[in-house]
């Protein structure tokens, strides 16, 4: 019995290892192919510059990985990002000191995530329907309070969050690396991380084993709210504007990156390394296609197909293991 249980687990470990290897190979192929399509692509400057664009998606994808591992989903991240950006912008415009405006933005992002988490756990509602509701609610509040207008006269020092370079390396890359390390440690080295996997594998069993299921979920949804706030500040600083249409369709990039990285949409499996590779692959693809002169709508089309294909391959391999 125990031998039988051990064997598939070992196979699973082997496959996960190769999955990340496969993703890495895919990335290398992508870089080479895109390098052929545009001479600008394959320069150190451009490759480092690409990282400026994936940090926002990447930060949110870290939180989304944990949520998807528990079997949940958060569709409201793009809308929450707009809400935070508009909060920061309007607070600054109405004369609040910039530092306080940032704190306000952080509080709004945290509150948005907490709201999702409480709705899901206290009322036993499906994350899909709650976050679909808040997807409309957050975007609507952002549109309503801003009246659709933009704020763009931010103080000079605010540019540091999104436009600072240390030599050729964009500053936000350090934020991302720190966040990746922190979430990776949390997921693979702490009891909390074990709880996340336990909930995703069998929520009922986890509850009966004494895992504080509700509290873990509230922490996860609140946590992604904080990551969304960080992404919103970096994005607002990078483009020096705050508008209510920020982050439209962001959830597609984020969810695609996470499932491309190998997390099962049914919960129970997924890794931070996989997600980071997924984020980098999608960013490379987008950057390379832009440089090659492919329209944005076509990039979105490819992302949609890529999302379906990635999940198909995931589930195909998972079934074969069983």
């Amino acid at each position: 019995m125990s031998a039988n249980q051990l064997r598939p687990l070992d196979v699973l470990k082997g496959v996960r290892f190769t999955r990340e290897l496969v993703l890495l190979c895919l990335l290398i192929v992508l870089v080479v192919v895109l390098g052929q399509m545009s001479p600008v692509f394959f320069t150190v400057g451009n490759l480092l510059n690409t990282s400026r664009f994936f940090v926002e998606v990447g930060l949110i994808a870290l939180g989304m990985t944990l949520i998807i591992i528990t079997g949940g989903i958060d569709l409201s991240v793009g809308a929450a990002m707009a809400l935070v950006a508009v909060t920061v912008g309007l607070a600054h415009q109405s004369g609040v000191p910039m530092a306080l405006a940032l704190v306000l933005g952080l509080a709004v992002g945290l509150a948005a995530g907490l709201f999702n988490g409480l709705m899901i756990t206290r009322l036993d509602l499906h994350p899909l329907v709650v976050t679909l509701g808040t997807f409309a609610l957050f975007r609507g509040i952002a549109l309503g309070v801003s009246g659709g207008g933009a704020v763009s006269s931010f103080p000079q020092w605010f540019e540091y969050f999104g436009q600072f370079y240390l030599g050729p390396v964009p500053g936000q890359l350090f934020v991302f690396i720190a966040a990746v390390t922190a979430v990776w440690l949390l997921l693979s080295r702490t009891p909390f991380g074990r709880y996340v996997y336990a909930i995703g594998n069998n929520e009922e069993a986890a509850r009966f084993s004494g895992v504080p299921v509700r509290r873990v979920k509230v922490v996860l949804y609140t946590g992604i709210g904080v990551l969304v706030s960080m992404a919103a500040v970096i994005y607002t600083s990078r483009v020096s504007t705050s508008r209510a249409d920020f982050g439209a369709g962001l959830e597609l990039d984020v969810i695609s990156a996470v499932v491309l990285g190998g997390a099962s949409i049914y919960g129970g499996s997924g890794t931070i390394a996989g997600t980071v590779l997924g984020v980098v692959i999608i960013a490379t693809l987008r950057n390379g296609l832009s440089l090659a002169g492919v329209e944005t709508t076509w990039q979105v089309f490819l992302l949609g197909v890529l999302l379906i294909a990635a999940v198909f391959v995931n589930e195909f391999f998972r079934r074969r293991e069983e």
């Binding site: 989903i73 949609g304 999302l307 379906i308 999940v311 589930e315």
Partner: peptide
């Protein structure tokens, strides 16, 4: 047949079909 969750299939199709329109 593909046994992909409907939320993922239709999220992907939401974007893919818009591409087909263009």
């Amino acid at each position: 047949l593909g046994r992909i969750p409907s939320i993922i299939v239709t999220l992907g199709m939401l974007y893919a079909l818009r591409g087909v329109i263009l």
